[in-house]
Amino acid sequence: MTVEPVIVGGQEIPAAAIAAEAQHHPAPDAGAAWQAAARALAVRQLLLAEAERLGIASDECRDAEGRALTGEDARIDALLDREVRTPSADEAACRRYYERHRERFASPTLVEAAHILIAADPDDTFAMGLATGDARTLIRQLQAEPERFADLARSRSACPSREQGGNLGQVGPGMMVKPFETALFGLAEHTLCPQPVKTRFGVHVIRSGRRVDGRQLPFEAVREAIANYLEEASYRRAAAQYIAVLAGQAGVSGVALGSADGAMVQ
C-alpha cells in the first residue's frame, strides 16, 4: 500500500508508528485503518505541540473511570480543559430538543409473536411459490382451528422457535426483518395474519399475541440525559474546531483531519 507521508508542523509521523496505531482502529480494510490511525496521531501531535508552546505541565489527571493518565495524555487533557470551553445545556435548550425528538423518548411498542416459517430461497421463484402455497394452506387450517398453531409450528416450521410452538416472545421495533415487523405490528392483539409474509428467510405464517403500546417518557425523566448529550455534542464540535485551527496554523499534509463537525479526538 503506497501512502503519502503524514507531516504535522513540518515533522513527519513515522510510518511504523501509524502501522502500530492502526491495530487500535477497526475498519473495513487496511487503508481505512491506516487513515484513522494517521488522523489520531496527527491530532495528538498537534495537541502536544500546542501544550508545549503554552507550557502546560503533565499534572496528574484521571479518565472517566478514575485511571491515571500518562504524561502526554494528561497534558492533552489539561490543554483541552483550558482551551475548549462550552456552555451548559440550559432548561430551554433541553426542552427544545425533547420536543423536536419526542419519538426518541418513548418506550417501544412490544408485541408477543409466533410464526411458522416455510423456508425457501427468495431468488428461487418456484420454491417461493411452493412455500407461499404451503403457507396459505396453513393459514386456512389455522383460521378453522386456531388452537393447532403450536402443533403445526412444531411439525412444519423451519425456525428453531418450533421447539416453543413457534413462539418468539416479545418483539420490539428493529428486532425482526422489515416485512415481518410491518406485518406483525399491523395486527391487532391475538390475530392471525391473513396473508403469507415473504422475507429473505422464506415465507411466514404470523400470529400476534399480547401488545404493549409504547409510552412517552416525561421530559423530567430524560432531562439529565438530554443535557449530557447536548453538552457532549457541543464539546466535540468545539474540540474539532479548535483542532482545525491548530492544523491551519501548523500545517498538516498526508491526512485529512475532516471538518469541524468531525469527532477527531480519540
Rank of each mutant, 00 (worst) to 15 (best):
M1K: 01
T2I: 09
P5R: 12
P5K: 13
I7R: 06
G10Y: 06
Q11K: 12
E12Q: 14
A16C: 02
A19D: 15
A22Q: 13
Q23G: 05
H25K: 05
A27P: 07
A30V: 05
A30L: 14
G31A: 12
A32G: 11
W34M: 05
Q35D: 12
A36E: 10
A36S: 14
A37G: 14
L41M: 07
A42L: 09
L47C: 08
L48P: 10
L48F: 14
A49W: 09
E50Y: 09
E50Q: 15
A51H: 10
E60A: 12
C61A: 12
A64S: 11
G66Y: 03
R67E: 07
A68N: 00
L69F: 03
E72M: 07
A74C: 10
I76Y: 04
D77E: 14
D77N: 06
A78T: 13
L79N: 08
L80M: 14
D81W: 03
V84C: 09
R85H: 11
P87A: 11
S88F: 03
A92F: 00
A93Y: 04
C94F: 01
R95I: 03
R96P: 00
Y97C: 08
Y97M: 11
R100Q: 14
H101Q: 02
S107H: 02
T109I: 06
E112A: 11
A113I: 05
A120S: 02
A120M: 01
P122W: 00
D124I: 00
F126H: 00
G129R: 08
R136H: 11
L138H: 04
Q141V: 03
Q143E: 15
E145P: 00
P146N: 09
P146I: 07
R148Q: 10
R148K: 10
R154E: 15
S155V: 07
A158C: 07
C159L: 11
R162H: 10
E163L: 09
E163S: 10
E163H: 08
G165N: 09
G172T: 03
K178H: 08
P179G: 05
F180P: 08
E181L: 04
L184A: 04
F185I: 10
L187Q: 11
A188C: 06
H190M: 00
H190K: 02
H190N: 14
L192N: 06
Q195H: 04
P196F: 01
V197F: 04
V197M: 00
K198T: 11
R200I: 02
R200G: 14
R200Y: 01
V203T: 06
V205Q: 07
V205W: 07
I206G: 06
I206H: 02
G209Q: 01
R211N: 07
D213E: 09
R215E: 15
Q216L: 15
P218Q: 04
F219S: 04
A221N: 02
A221C: 01
A221R: 04
A225R: 06
A225L: 03
I226W: 02
N228E: 11
N228F: 11
Y229N: 03
Y229E: 11
Y229G: 01
A233E: 15
Y235M: 08
Y235L: 10
R236L: 08
A238I: 08
A239Q: 13
A240T: 03
Y242F: 15
I243S: 05
V245G: 04
L246T: 11
A247S: 09
Q249G: 08
Q249L: 12
V252E: 01
L257P: 05
G258S: 10
A260K: 02
M264V: 15
